[in-house]
């Protein structure tokens, strides 16, 4: 039996999530022994034509040609995995969704008429069916290996949908909101990172996006009590996952 093939694709993104694959080091060597990396331009300009068993798709869809390309990738992929905040929620660039793109275009580019762009930065799932999503900015190496290992073994991957608090508690980090008065988005943010930031005394800034089962507005009163202004709140929730639908309610509530 031929080794399963893996392809890695980039849309509007910074490449950090793809680099997580290269950052797997020893595990990458082990992985390379079990799969054929057929298309991964960040690692090699040599590519193999599809179809592919697994496609990892980084970045958000922001141009008309992106829409066509993501459909072609979907058609060539048995399993399609959206990786990172851009691919799962539109990324930081989804801040454009709240502004006038034509105005941006006219200010930023010398020849705005050369620029073809969509009004919104959208996650991959807006345009094609997605089999799995890995959240984060960037994604977590452990979750990537868990997902690829599960796909190789034909089992269900462990991708929890609960809060970051689970991970702080498992590693014994005292709650920053309670014990330090440090603003932290952990209670309304999906786990998967291992609660790295709180372990170093830094509040979670929500790069894994909102927990689907929670109304993030329940955290606002606490964050206000810790001194955050309406502007602070808007910025905190409008970063990596600005366009995540679950955060839309925040905008209405935090107006000054």
């Amino acid at each position: 039996m031929d080794a399963p093939t893996l392809a890695v694709w980039k849309f509007a993104s910074c490449d950090g999530c793809q680099l997580t694959l290269l950052d797997c080091e020893d595990d990458l060597l082990m992985l390379a022994g079990r799969i054929k990396i057929a298309h991964f331009l960040e690692a090699s300009s040599a590519t193999v034509a599809g179809p592919y068993d697994v496609s990892l798709v980084e970045g958000s869809v922001t141009t008309p040609s992106d829409v066509e390309r993501v459909k072609r990738i979907r058609a060539q992929s048995k399993a399609l995995v959206a990786i990172g905040a851009c691919a799962t929620a539109g990324g930081i660039q989804a801040l454009r969704n709240f502004a006038d793109v034509d105005e941006f275009r006219s200010v930023v580019y010398a020849r705005p008429d050369y620029i073809q762009t969509l009004a919104r930065s959208e996650p991959i799932s807006t345009y094609v069916p997605v089999d799995y999503e890995l959240r984060g900015c960037p994604i977590d190496r452990g979750q990537l290996l868990e997902l690829l290992g599960a796909l190789l073994a034909g089992r269900r991957p462990q991708l929890p949908v609960h809060s970051v608090c689970f991970e702080c508690k498992a590693r014994g980090t005292p709650c920053l909101l309670v014990a330090a008065g440090t603003p932290c988005l952990g209670p309304v943010t999906q786990a998967g990172c291992g609660a790295i930031c709180p372990a170093y005394g830094r509040g979670c800034y929500g790069c894994f996006g909102p927990v689907a089962a929670t109304d993030p507005r329940a955290l606002l009163a606490k964050l206000r009590a810790l001194g955050m202004s309406a502007d602070d709140l808007r910025r905190a929730f409008r970063t990596f996952n600005a366009a995540a639908p679950a955060l839309a309610a925040i905008e209405e509530t935090s107006e000054p």
């Binding site: 809060s163 508690k169 952990g186 209670p187 309304v188 929670t214 329940a218 955290l219």
Partner: peptide, 13 residues
């Protein structure tokens, strides 16, 4: 429910 974050801190502690 309007105040609860469903974050599970209570059960973990």
């Amino acid at each position: 429910a309007s105040r609860c974050l469903s974050c599970a801190n209570c059960t973990m502690v």
